Simulated scan of single mutants.
Amino acid sequence: MIIPRTAQQATSIRRVAAALAAAAAIGGLTAVPATATESRAYGMTSSFVAYEGTSFSGRSADINGCGQHAIPFHGSYKWIPRGQDGRMHNAADGRDPVHTVLRSNRDAEMSTPFGWQSIYIVC
Rank of each mutant, 00 (worst) to 15 (best):
M1N: 10
I2Q: 08
I2S: 08
I3R: 13
P4H: 04
P4I: 08
P4M: 04
P4Q: 07
A7V: 14
Q9D: 12
Q9R: 04
S12K: 14
S12F: 13
I13S: 01
I13P: 02
I13L: 09
R14E: 15
R15A: 12
V16T: 12
A18F: 10
A19F: 06
A24M: 15
A25W: 11
A25K: 11
G27K: 03
G28R: 03
L29A: 08
A31I: 14
P33C: 01
P33W: 00
A34P: 02
A34F: 03
A34M: 01
A34Q: 11
T37E: 15
E38I: 02
E38P: 02
E38T: 05
S39E: 09
R40H: 06
R40D: 09
A41L: 13
A41T: 15
Y42D: 14
G43Q: 08
G43Y: 06
G43N: 11
S46Q: 10
S47L: 02
F48A: 05
F48I: 12
A50L: 01
A50Y: 00
Y51S: 06
Y51H: 13
E52K: 02
E52R: 02
G53E: 04
G53M: 01
S55D: 15
S55N: 15
S55I: 08
S57T: 12
G58S: 08
G58Y: 04
A61V: 11
D62A: 15
D62R: 15
D62L: 13
D62V: 14
I63R: 00
I63T: 12
N64W: 13
C66A: 13
C66M: 10
G67V: 05
G67H: 05
Q68L: 15
Q68I: 12
Q68S: 14
H69A: 08
H69V: 09
P72V: 01
F73R: 09
H74A: 13
Y77P: 06
Y77A: 03
Y77S: 00
Y77C: 00
K78H: 02
K78N: 04
W79M: 09
G83W: 01
G83T: 09
G83L: 07
G83D: 07
Q84A: 06
G86Y: 01
G86P: 02
M88H: 11
M88C: 13
M88I: 14
H89T: 04
N90Q: 11
N90S: 11
A91Q: 10
D93N: 15
D93V: 08
D93P: 08
G94D: 11
G94I: 03
G94E: 06
G94M: 02
P97K: 00
V98Q: 03
S104W: 07
S104P: 04
D107Y: 11
D107F: 10
E109V: 07
M110G: 14
T112V: 05
T112I: 03
P113V: 01
P113S: 00
F114L: 05
F114D: 09
F114R: 07
G115N: 00
W116C: 02
W116Q: 05
S118K: 05
Y120A: 12
Y120R: 11
V122A: 13
C123N: 09
C123S: 07
